[in-house]
Structure formats: C-alpha cells, structure tokens
Design a protein around this nucleic acid. Structure first.
Length: 552
RNA sequence: UGGGGUGUCGCCAAGCGGCAAGGCACUGGGUUUUGAUCCCAGCAUUCGUAGGUUCGAAUCCUGCCACCCCAGCCA
C-alpha cells in the first residue's frame, strides 16, 4: 500500500511516542456504529487509522461500536466489513464488538457506584434536561444524587433485571453539575432500552452510552492512539475521567482530526438513509451515493479513494474539500489503468459510399495509447458505422473539429473520411450521413496533404452491440445542500441519472466483466455494472467524464 | 453569553524565529489519430485583524474579529 503523503500531526505524535518509548506497538481502531453504510468520510478515517498502524508497524482493529440496538442491524455489519476489505485493509484478528464487553462495563459501573462515583437517577428525560442547565447557566444537582451506595447498587441491579420501564431510570456518573463542559454534568452511563440486540439478543435491557463505552473499549483492546473527529473533543475530559476512576491499567489517548466535508455532497448517515428510505436513490449502493458501495458501483477504484485521502491530508481544521479533487483522483487512476474502447452514446449512421459492400476489416488497435504493455484488441471496421450525432454538423466554424459536410475527420484508430451529404427522414431529422473513405489513411495522413481536422470515435453498424449506458452527474445542484437552514432535498439534481438504452459499443466490450473499468474514448471512464451487466445485456455506468476544456 | 476548537492563494495543505513547499482548480504555450493524457510556464512582497517583542515574526506575546462544535437516556 502506498504511504506517500508527508507527515500529519498524528504521525508526529506517534513518532514521538515511539521515540520516547511510551508505546512499543501502535494500536489503532476503526470503530463504526453499524447503523448505515460507510461513506467517503469514513474512508478518510479508515485510511488514517489503518494507514497509521501500517506506517508504524502496528495493528488496527475493526470494532463495531454497537451500544445502541435501536438503529443497528446485521445488514450494516456485513456491508461495513465488505467495504473496509474492498478499500484494501485487513483488520487485526477477528472483527470486534463493543457488545462483547457488556459484562465488563457493568462490573465497572458497579465499581463506580461502590466508589461513590455513580448513582441511579429517576429524573425523566425532560427533567434531566432542565436540571442540566444551559451553556451559560450551571446545572442543578439531581435530587437522587446522594442516594446511598446500597440503594444505588440495588437499583442498578433492578435496572439490569428489567424491573423498570424504558426511561424510568438511568445510571449517571457523579462529576460536576456546574462544569462549563456540558459533558461533565453527571453524564449518563446506562439507559434502559428493552430492545433485542443484534449480537446479545435479549441478554440486556440496559445499554451503556457512547461515553461510558468508548474509552473502555479502547482500554480493553490496548489501543494506544484513539483517533476520532473534532466534535468529540469536548468528550475527552470524560474519556480520561473514566480511565482515572476505573481500575484500568492501559490508558489510551484520544486525538481528534477534522472530519471530511465535500462540496456538492452530503455525508451524514441520517441524510443518506433518508435518500434511501424515501426512494430518491435506488439504495445505499446507488452510483450517485457518496457511500463506498455507491462509489464502487460508480466505477471508483479503492486505489483512487486511498489516493484522494492521501491528497486531502489530515489536520484539525475543518474545511470543505472540492469534489474536483476526488474526481481528479479517479481520473488519474483510470487514465493510467483503464483500457480504451469506443462507444457511441447517440448513434448517427454513416454510410461509406466508396467502401466495398460487405467488406469487414479487423483492425488491431492498442488498448492504451501510452502503455503498450496493456496489449491490443480487435475492432471491426465496415462500410456502415455509427458516430455520435454530436460529432456531426452540416456546417460549422473552424472551432468545430469533427465531421462537417465537405470536410474531413479521422475515425479513431481507422481511416480519414470526408462527408458528402446528409439524408433526412420524414420528420426532417438527420438520419444518415453519406461519406467517403480517403484511401490509404490507415495509420497515415492523406496523401494529398489535406489533414483531418479532428478525431472521432465510431462503432461498426454491423458488428457493434447495443448497450445500456447510465450517465451520472452530481447528486446535488448546490455546493452546500445542507448548510444553514436549507433542506438538502430541495437541491437534488433531477438529471443526476440519465439512462441511455441504445448506445452502441464495439464488440470487444461484450467480454467485459462486471466491475471492469474502461475509458470510452473522448467521453469518459465507464465501468461494467457490478450487478446488472452481462454479455447478453451490457450495462455500463459512467464513472466520470473526461476533462473537457472545449467551450462551445 | 459559558466551555472547547480553527483561521496560510478560489479549495486542500506544508511551515514550528531567518526571509511563503506541494496538490486541486484556473490561465497561457508545446506534443498528440482521445478537444484526454503528457510537457513547459504563470498563479500569496503575503500568512483573519490591530498592536507589541526581536537585527529579523506566518512562526513568540496581547487585544480584537470571523467561523465550527457542545444544552440526545445518538455516536
């Protein structure tokens, strides 16, 4: 795996810890909650955590932070593992689950109660909010704050035994209701949730909160550097508080970095789920989605996504990355690695009047213009072919470097032709162009010195194949669809998907395997759909268009 | 308004007291059977702002301003 990027502040911290002998082996973790599919923002965290472990010869765990059964499911557990592997990472040992530690967490809860550091509180959610105070006013102590240790112990066991209803009681840490840090105002450790859990079934009716679980999970696993996003910075004092007040040997340290924001994109599991649930996209893996499953189906390679993460860096400032950077990463990768092929999206028939009827030439052409080692392919040439309707005009100015009546154009990898006349159908629409081949222009310029203006792609009408091509555009029309009080759904791009049923592809493309990437020359990069493509019914998804500096 | 953060080119980002890397985007020019790629050139006398310290500051100090996060029994 490539670790090209220069140092970020976390590498500096880790390098120092190693140098100072504070850690012998770096252990990180990627801790998703299984309540949605992974998106490009998670890719940043994955590359960071796994990358750091890799760079310093340590290891990285994949741990599901499954402390809230309400929104979690097996579907997400499966997809997350698949996506992490697809990105190219292997976690240390088995997949881990926070729920595996529930017994230990409970024992620690009892420890805190016995030490007088936690209590059972009967305040309702509403009352608790009132007692908590506000950003500028201190909170008030709960009337239940000074229950005896014996009472608390009995109540906690009763909570665990299911003797109370959801919301009736919680376990809280006894810290400081006047703390300017809201997280320290007697945070909740356990809440009652009479719900089956995907891992522990009906074993528990009380579940630990994120705060009471995360740092302890890290400690149990021997995590040395617990890396999370900026919004958890205020939780760090609490993260440390548990380590100080619990009989824990290993004390991990939490570090925060800026979450990835991409323009023209939403990266919030809640919003992505909404797009799926309300049918705005076909699923979590819809090629328009910024999910890893969606990007994959769109034709993004894992290598390009890793490169992208490398390019954007890791800092504590939170900016908005231009989606053009992501697009550059995939273009760069595919330009290098995708074999070329020809496809006509909007077929217009061209009849070559001086080409021997019925003749077919099998042209051997390179798979890549600058990489001989990628081999060659056979492309049949015949007297009737299709070019893109946009590549022909009856007349045009000099800027138009394609086919024009009376002018010449190079057919990519084949002959130069000159257009003679247009044939219209009954509706007055151009249905055919009649043209002539310029003799002896295979691999050389016309002998008369009149060069072709440009180059266009084509497909043999007899030997080409039909294909469905899905052309994608960004999902949102607004650069920041969810900023401020805007409703992101108001900015959905109605043209984010355009399905072309009758595109024509060169025959070699029927051999494409699902997920194989190509460059359709002069158009863009495409991938054979992971699920819907077959030789009998080819389906290609546009990954990204070629860079286009031509303005007309 | 209390607490915690962040402010270096349109965007991302190096820099950690010695005279502003790099990438993306953009703009010129060259090569080209992809208006692609590739190549070459240009692109912050200035580092949120106002002062101070210093021979010297983006880097140290002070004030101010802007933006982000926190009042879930979500993570």
């Amino acid at each position: 795996m490539e670790n090209t990027k220069a140092n970020n502040f976390l590498q500096t911290i880790i390098a120092d810890d190693i140098k100072d002998g504070i850690v012998k082996e770096v252990v990180t973790r990627f801790p998703p909650e299984p309540n949605g599919f992974l998106h490009v923002g998670h890719a940043k965290a994955i590359c960071l955590n796994f990358g750091l472990a890799e760079t310093y010869g340590g290891r990285c765990n994949l741990r599901f932070d499954d402390t809230n059964p309400e929104k979690e499911s097996q579907e997400y557990i499966d997809s997350i593992q698949e996506d992490v592997r697809w990105l190219g990472y292997q976690w240390s040992g088995d997949v881990l689950f926070a729920s595996t530690y529930f017994d230990q967490f409970f024992a620690w809860a009892i420890y805190l109660v016995e030490a007088g550091n936690a209590y059972v509180c009967d305040l309702s959610a509403q009352q608790a909010r009132e007692y908590r105070g506000t950003l500028t006013e201190v909170g008030k102590n709960s009337p239940y704050r000074n229950r005896s240790i014996e009472d608390n112990l009995g109540l906690l066991e009763a909570m665990k035994a299911g003797e109370f209803a959801d919301g009736e009681k919680v376990l809280r840490a006894k810290i400081d209701m006047a703390s300017p840090n809201m997280n320290m105002r007697d945070p909740i450790l356990y809440r009652i949730r009479k719900l089956p859990h995907h891992q522990t079934g009906s074993d528990w009716v009380i579940y630990p909160t994120y705060d009471f679980a995360h740092g302890q999970e890290d400690a149990i696993e021997g995590i040395t550097h617990s890396i999370c996003t900026l919004e958890f910075e205020d939780h760090r004092p609490l993260y440390d508080w548990f380590h100080q007040h619990l009989p824990i040997g290993n004390k991990p340290n939490q570090y925060e970095f800026g979450r990835l924001h991409l323009n023209y994109t939403v990266t919030s599991k809640r919003k992505l789920k909404q797009l799926v649930d309300q049918g705005f996209v076909s699923g979590w893996n819809d090629p328009r989605m910024p999910t890893l499953a969606g990007l994959r189906r769109r034709g993004y390679t894992a290598r390009a996504i890793r490169k992208f993460c490398d390019m954007i860096g890791v800092t504590r400032s939170d900016g908005i990355v231009d989606v053009a950077m992501l697009e550059h990463a995939i273009r760069d990768d595919l330009n290098e690695n995708a074999p070329r092929a020809m496809c006509v999206l909007n077929p217009l028939k061209v009849v070559l009047t001086n080409y021997p009827e019925g003749q077919v030439e099998e042209l051997m052409v390179p798979a890549h213009p600058n990489r001989e080692q990628m081999g060659e392919r056979l492309v049949p040439f015949s007297g009737e072919l299709f070019i893109d309707a946009e590549d022909f005009r009856e007349q045009a100015n000099k800027k138009f470097k394609r086919l024009v009546i009376g002018k010449r154009v190079r057919l990519r990898n084949a002959y130069v032709i000159e257009a003679d006349e247009v044939v219209w159908d009954d509706a007055g629409k151009i249905c055919e162009v009649r043209a002539r081949i310029i003799e002896d222009t295979l691999g050389r310029d016309p002998a008369d010195g009149v060069k072709a203006k440009g180059v266009i792609q084509w497909v043999s009408a007899d030997r080409g194949e039909r294909a469905q091509v899905r052309v994608y555009d960004r999902l949102f029309t607004d650069e920041a669809p969810d900023r401020g009080d805007k409703n992101f759904l108001d900015y959905l791009n109605p043209n984010a998907l355009r399905t072309i049923e009758e595109a024509m592809i060169e025959p070699s493309l029927t051999e494409a395997l699902p997920e194989q990437n190509f460059q359709f020359e002069r158009i863009g990069y495409f991938v054979a759909d992971r699920y819907d493509h077959s030789a009998a019914a080819p389906v290609f998804n546009m990954t990204i268009g070629l860079r286009d500096t031509w303005n007309s």
